[in-house]
Simulated assay, not measured.
Amino acid sequence: MHILQSTEEFEQFKSSTAVIFEFTADWCGDCRFIDPFMPEVVEKFPEYTFVKVDRDKFLDLCIDLGIIGIPSFLAYENGIELGRFVSKDRKTQQEIESFISNLK
């Protein structure tokens, strides 16, 4: 899993590949809940590049994208939004995998 370093990098990932952005924060308990199983999710979907976005470092980006709660997921392919799983609710591995499976 990549860790986003800049908004420019966000635009590069967004426009050049099938990518899933995971919006998270160190202090977020629900984000820590999904950490143990996210490597397995990443492994199940090798067609996607996964990029972790620290909400606190990229607050303006999150506001622009309408990311209100974390953890949340936003998927793009070649600059086109494929889908979003955005809420403040805790997410299970099954819910995340279902979201990704239904993107195309």
Rank of each mutant, 00 (worst) to 15 (best):
36 P>Y: 13
51 V>E: 05
18 A>W: 04
67 I>M: 00
8 E>V: 11
10 F>C: 08
86 V>E: 10
24 T>K: 12
64 D>P: 01
42 V>K: 13
62 C>S: 13
99 F>V: 00
65 L>P: 02
69 G>R: 00
21 F>I: 10
90 R>D: 00
83 G>Q: 02
15 S>G: 13
53 V>L: 06
64 D>I: 02
24 T>H: 11
17 T>C: 09
10 F>T: 09
100 I>M: 03
66 G>R: 06
73 F>I: 02
35 D>N: 14
96 I>G: 00
15 S>T: 15
36 P>E: 12
63 I>T: 13
25 A>T: 11
56 D>G: 00
75 A>V: 07
99 F>W: 04
33 F>T: 13
3 I>P: 00
82 L>C: 06
33 F>H: 15
99 F>M: 00
86 V>M: 02
94 Q>W: 04
25 A>L: 10
44 K>I: 04
42 V>I: 14
15 S>I: 06
66 G>F: 04
77 E>M: 06
85 F>A: 03
91 K>H: 08
36 P>G: 10
41 V>C: 07
34 I>T: 12
68 I>R: 14
74 L>C: 02
64 D>T: 09
10 F>N: 07
86 V>D: 09
31 C>A: 09
39 P>Y: 10
46 P>A: 05
94 Q>S: 13
29 G>H: 10
28 C>P: 05
102 N>T: 06
89 D>C: 01
86 V>L: 02
70 I>V: 05
16 S>I: 05
92 T>I: 04
17 T>V: 08
66 G>A: 05
65 L>N: 03
62 C>P: 03
92 T>P: 01
99 F>C: 00
10 F>Y: 15
34 I>C: 08
61 L>N: 06
58 F>K: 03
12 Q>L: 15
5 Q>C: 07
88 K>P: 04
87 S>L: 01
16 S>D: 09
29 G>N: 10
78 N>D: 15
43 E>D: 13
53 V>Y: 06
79 G>F: 05
102 N>W: 01
55 R>A: 11
37 F>I: 07
43 E>L: 12
5 Q>Y: 01
25 A>E: 09
8 E>D: 14
11 E>W: 07
79 G>W: 06
51 V>S: 07
